[in-house]
């Protein structure tokens, strides 16, 4: 547990990932991936774009990385495994739940050994296994709530009133738009689009989100 834990897929890892971590989590840009050569574990926190995530995981596998804790809310673990030859093991997780600092984290295909490692890295968090599905639990709950809230925002209800409504009327710990800011709108968009692909139009990202992000996130042939 002395070596740092490399974190890829972001150059600015959210503090939710670091919260209570027993290891130094060191971000690695895609240009510096070779520093992770032979690492026992790497974290890939990215939810999109998926073509870049695929390319990154393949590079890590080529560098002899033995296992990756990978965000699996926008592509199932089964889908991510098809990108690789099988020499690098994958364990899925929900990056939004990590960012939210959830004390109960959902993981996919974690062995007892993996669970022991996860508990050693994040001793304050409990890890529970769930089925390999887009959205897992938390993202599937929170993203459509944000999408609904955006619908009101686009109709002129203020951000403050929307968030007050959820906090005071539902006792939610944050308002939906505050959640979106915590995650970042690209994460919200990628998550909703993956849910839409898997479960249908009820998850279609609100046009306001798409307009806000422009076309940049649609490039790259996800």
């Amino acid at each position: 547990m002395n070596e740092p834990l490399w974190m890829v897929g972001t150059t600015d890892p959210h503090e939710g990932w670091h919260q209570g971590a027993a290891l130094d989590m060191v971000p690695l840009s895609d240009a510096d991936l070779d520093r992770a050569q032979g690492a026992a574990w790497v974290v890939d926190s990215s939810a999109g774009p998926l073509d870049k995530k695929r390319q990154r995981l393949r590079m890590l596998e080529g560098l002899g990385v033995r296992a990756a804790l990978t965000a699996s809310t926008t592509a199932t673990l089964a889908a991510q495994q098809t990108w690789l030859t099988g020499s690098m093991r994958l364990v899925g997780c929900d990056p939004l739940l990590m960012m939210a600092g959830g004390s109960v984290q959902t993981v996919v295909q974690a062995t007892d050994g993996d669970l022991a490692w996860l508990s050693a890295v994040w001793p304050d968090r409990k890890f529970v296994g769930v089925a390999d599905s887009v959205g897992l639990v938390f993202s599937r709950e929170i993203l459509p709530i944000i999408n609904e809230a955006v619908d009101f925002f686009s109709q002129g209800v203020t951000e403050d009133e929307i968030d007050q409504g959820a906090r005071l009327g539902l006792n939610y710990p944050r308002g939906p738009l505050a959640w979106a800011k915590l995650f970042g709108w690209p994460q919200v968009f990628w998550g909703l689009r993956a849910l839409q692909d898997m479960y249908g139009t009820r998850f279609q990202p609100h046009p306001w989100i798409r307009a806000r992000l422009g076309s940049s996130l649609l490039d790259g042939g996800e």
Partner: peptide, 15 residues
């Protein structure tokens, strides 16, 4: 995807 107890625990764990 998960039993209801797990769904409740996850959301409660997130605040």
């Amino acid at each position: 995807v998960a039993p209801m107890e797990t769904v409740d625990q996850v959301m409660e764990g997130a605040g």
